[in-house]
């Protein structure tokens, strides 16, 4: 009994969770178990060094619908640490598990390490204004964002795959699921980004940003409002505490104010450039270079200058 358990419906993210799980194993001396959503990911994850792989059977439906069943399983196993991939579905599942285990849950946890009396974690407060160091008593649950650690190197050890029967929570009826069309570009991998905000007045005006991005060989990113309210760009393009975290060489922020909830997702970029008509916009404090001016005038000039 006891153990460190890992779950994500996203198999690549589940692989990444094994890195902190295996580090904790060295300190806590407890086995690492993966809960895999299907046989294919079970086989892939088995090669990354866990001690056990449990493949969930009998369950169709969303990860959240499995929360009651997984919580019961983890309680029975007396899990000491549960690491869950920090997708929104994963966060829902983790919160349910934490409630059932009577455990603390660190959302978007980083820097996991054994600490006196439990599991030490770091997390963000006030939208990114501050970082807090916390200790969770065991049993402890944490959600971890994609890209926080690389997956471990494959290991040669043989692991048996154990089937476990789980039942989905039937209280929520799902009528229709629409997968967002994948935008083709993974902006986490982009070396240069041009990010747009509410300073753009219409969707067509984003052409100004696209042209600049073309001249810079950059991809487009945006603030939450541009994706979630206006739907001018896909959800996976928005940066910030509730969106993506990126670390490109160049981040050009045009017509966006630079509130901390946005900047927390891009502030580790190598060079940050701001174009904003309001000299007092917070983005200028966060920028290496900036132009105070109307983006409708500045962007075409900059595009032309760079094209030369």
């Amino acid at each position: 009994m006891a153990g460190i358990f890992v779950y994500s419906e996203d198999a690549a993210l589940a692989g990444q969770l094994l890195t902190p799980a295996l580090e904790l194993k060295r300190a806590l001396g407890q086995p690492v178990a993966v809960l895999a959503p299907d046989p294919a990911s079970a086989a892939a994850l088995a090669a990354l060094g866990p001690d056990r792989v449990l493949v969930l059977e009998g369950a169709s439906g969303s990860p959240e619908a499995l929360a009651p069943a997984l919580a019961a399983l983890l309680a029975q196993e007396e899990a000491q640490v549960v690491l869950v991939g920090a997708t929104l579905r994963g966060k829902h599942l983790a919160a349910h598990v934490a409630a059932v285990l009577g455990a603390g849950l660190a959302s978007d946890a980083r820097a996991l390490a054994p600490a006196e009396g439990g599991l030490g974690v770091q997390r963000i407060l006030y939208g990114g204004l501050a970082v807090s160091d916390e200790v969770l008593a065991f049993p402890a649950v944490a959600t971890i964002q994609a890209g926080t650690s690389p997956a471990p190197a494959p290991s040669a050890a043989e692991v048996a795959i154990e089937p476990v029967q789980v039942q989905a929570d039937a209280r929520i009826r799902v009528h229709r699921v629409e997968k967002a069309a994948a935008g083709g570009v993974d902006i986490a991998a982009s070396r240069r980004l041009v990010a747009v905000g509410r300073g753009f007045r219409t969707r067509e005006d984003l052409d100004l940003a696209s042209s600049l991005a073309g001249a810079l060989h950059a991809d487009l990113a945006c603030t939450r409002g541009i994706a979630e309210d206006e739907h001018w760009l896909p959800i996976e393009r928005y940066i910030g505490i509730s969106g993506r975290t990126v670390k490109p060489d160049l981040y050009v922020a045009a017509g966006l104010s630079g509130q901390v909830q946005h900047m927390v997702g891009c502030r580790e970029s190598r060079v940050i450039v701001a174009v904003n008509s309001d000299e007092r916009a917070p983005i200028f404090e966060a920028a290496d270079y900036g132009i105070v001016g109307d983006l409708y005038q500045v962007l075409p000039l900059l595009t032309a200058a760079l094209a030369k």
């Binding site: 204004l129 501050a130 807090s132 404090e285 900036g290």
Partner: peptide
């Protein structure tokens, strides 16, 4: 179940040109 040990503010250290 979760105890806060300390909080540190994040400062932007940029050139601001």
């Amino acid at each position: 179940r979760s105890t806060r040990l300390g909080v540190r503010g994040f400062v932007m250290n940029r050139r601001n040109i």
